[in-house]
Amino acid sequence: MQSDHEGIKELLPEYLRGTLPDEVKSEVESHVKDCRDCRDEVAFLTEIVSIEAPDPGDLFWKTLPRKVKLTVEEKKLGFSLKYLFGGLPVAAVAALLLLALISTPVQRKDMPAQVLIFRDPLTASVPDYGDITEKDITRITAQLTDEELYLPHEDFMGHSYYREVASLSSKEIEGLYEALEKEQRAGG
């Protein structure tokens, strides 16, 4: 119970906003009726509270909750990345992310797993030739015909650089080597 004048005066803002319980409200009203000072205070408060903040519009009220939520989530994600890559320069972080992205195998439903291994250059396994012996190489070479050895290197006109180089003499090969070295030195 707020029976003293100062106590009632303290309650006037809440009284004007209508947030007081009924019992306290009637007590305030009966005091204000007989108290000039409190009546002045009510008049003053009513006057200044009449200045309302302009409404920014429905769009603002409707979009703000979502905007806040998204900003908070975005910042949280930014913080996690900063925590993970805090000591690295931006370029290194970008390179790591790019590497992670391209090295993640994406398996298509219509493609068998084995095919994926050979299509993906970063994850392709190198065939193991460890168990092939000299004897095997001789046997395999003997089985290959001249055509099988050279034809795959032909261009669409039927011209084979392999065959052409093979036909050069040792002097010609030496000359070609020197010419190539000269061109390399010149930056060609």
Binding site: L64, P65, R66, V68, K69, V72, E73
Partner: peptide
């Protein structure tokens, strides 16, 4: 995260 929206509203 939806609780944020409720508090803002």
């Amino acid at each position: 995260a939806d609780a944020v929206e409720d508090l803002v509203m």
